[in-house]
Simulated scan of single mutants.
Amino acid sequence: MTIPRRMSHTRCKYTAHAKPPRAFTLIELLVVIAVIGILVGLLLPAVQAAREAARRMQCSNNVKQIALALHTYHDTHQSMPTSMTGSDQHAGGAGSGFHSWLARILPNIEQAALHEQIHFDQPLADRTDYAADGDYIDYTLSPGHPDEKAAGSMVPTYLCPSDPGSIVQFSLGIPTAPGSYAGNIGWPRLSTGPGVTTPLAKQNGVIGLYNPVSVDQWQQPRIRFADIRDGLSNTIAIGERVIAQVFESTDMFGGSAISHATPLSMQSFCGGGSTGRSLSRWVGYCESVSVADAQYSISHGHAWISGWTFMANHIMPVIPINRRSCHVYGGEDDGMNLVTPSSHHIGGLNIAMADGSVQFITESIDRELYWALGSSNGSETVELP
C-alpha cells in the first residue's frame, strides 16, 4: 500500500526575471488628455447649439402666447392694451398711472391671481408731481409700495431663456421682475417713412400709450384691430428686447459713463429733440452719436409691470435690429423712445405679427421692409421672406 505524500503549500513568488505591469508614460498620458480635449472641443459647440435651439424655441413659444393674449384681451375690451407713461393727478391725491400693457394682459396668460394683486387705481411711482418732461427721468419705487410684491413676481412667459438678464433687478429701488418682450408703438412723432409722406401726427403702432396729466396728440390710448389698416399680418405687434446689464465706469471728471464691456444693444444714445425726421435721418442721427448715456440705458427691461418710458417695454422698429437704442429729449413723458428690437439669439430675433403669427427676422432684413412692418397705416406692400 502506497501512502500519498502530503501536499505542501507554498506561496507564489516572482522569479528574478519577472516584470511589473506596464503603466502609461507621461507622454502617452498627455496624448490621451489632448485627444479628450479635442473631442470635447468638437462636441461642446454642438451641445451649445442644441441648447440654444431649445431656448430659441421656448422664446418663440412665449412670443406666441403673448400674441394670443393680445387677441383675447381685444375680444374682451374691444381694443389693444395700453401703457400709462404718467400718473393721473387730481385734487386731493393721484389716481392711477404707470402700469404697463404687460400688466393688463396677465389674466390672458393664466396669471389672473397676479393681476388681482396689482393696484391699478394707484400710481406705480413714488412721485406724481411731474411737471416738465425732464422730471420723468426721476422714477423710483420705494419699499412698502402697494405693488411691491407684484412688481417682484417673475412671470416665466415674459422671460426669454436665452437672456442672462432674466433675474431679479434692482434699478428702481426695490426688487423688480424683468421682461424680455416689448410692444410695438410705431414710429417717432412727426416722422416720415415708407407709405407715409405727411409727418406722423398719431401713433402708428399696435400698443397704445397714455399720460393723463400730459395729454399728447401723438399718444393713442385706444388702438383697435380696425385701426391697423395695413392688415394684422403686415404689422409687428411685439418683439424681443434684451434686458439691460449696463456696466458703468467713471470718467476723469467723476461722471458716469457706460463701459465698453456693455453690448451695443443695451446702450441708449441721444437722439436729440423730438423734431420731425424721415426714418433714414433718424437712423443717421442716432448712429452718429459717439457716447451712450447710462442714465437712459440702465433700466431697459427691468420691470415688466411698469409703463415708464425708460423701462423700455415698448419698441420702435427704426434703428436696425440688435443695434443701439436712442432716447429723445422731450419724449420722457409720452413714451417716445426709440427702443430697438434685440435678442441674444444668433443673427436675429423673434417677433409676433398682429394676427398672432410668429416670425424670426434676421439682422439682414431689408430696411424699408423692417420700417413697413413697424407701421400700422403706411399702406405698404409687405412680403416676408
Rank of each mutant, 00 (worst) to 15 (best):
A49L: 09
P45N: 02
Y73C: 02
L42M: 07
K64E: 06
A34E: 03
S79T: 06
I36W: 02
L68K: 13
Q48H: 10
L68R: 09
I33K: 07
G86K: 03
V63A: 12
Q78A: 10
C59Q: 14
T76M: 02
K64M: 09
V35Y: 01
Q89H: 11
R56S: 15
Q48G: 11
A46R: 14
H71S: 14
G86W: 00
S83T: 13
Q58D: 15
Q65L: 12
V63L: 11
A91W: 12
V63M: 13
I66S: 06
R56L: 14
M80G: 02
V47D: 00
I38Y: 03
Q89E: 05
Q78M: 01
A46E: 02
H71P: 09
Q48P: 01
T76E: 00
A91Q: 11
I38R: 02
V47Q: 06
L70F: 15
M57I: 03
H90M: 07
A49M: 07
A34F: 06
Q89I: 12
L44I: 11
C59E: 08
M57Q: 12
M80R: 07
M57W: 02
L39A: 13
G37E: 00
T85Y: 00
S87K: 03
R56N: 12
T82C: 12
D88A: 15
I36H: 00
M84H: 12
L43T: 11
Q78R: 08
I66Y: 00
A50K: 09
Q78W: 02
V32E: 00
D75E: 11
M80Y: 10
Q48S: 10
I33M: 10
Q78D: 04
L43C: 08
I33S: 12
V32D: 00
N62Q: 07
R55I: 05
A91M: 09
Q58C: 11
A69C: 13
Y73R: 06
S60P: 08
P45T: 10
K64I: 04
A53Q: 13
V40M: 07
D75N: 14
N61V: 13
Q48Y: 11
Q58K: 15
A34N: 07
Q48R: 14
A54R: 14
S60H: 11
M80K: 06
I36V: 15
T85M: 01
L42S: 04
H77E: 01
I38L: 07
V63N: 08
L42F: 09
L70G: 03
S60A: 15
H90C: 02
N61C: 08
G41C: 01
A49I: 05
T76V: 05
Q65D: 05
M80N: 04
T72G: 05
Q65P: 10
Y73F: 15
R56P: 02
P81S: 04
Q48W: 12
M84R: 09
Y73Q: 01
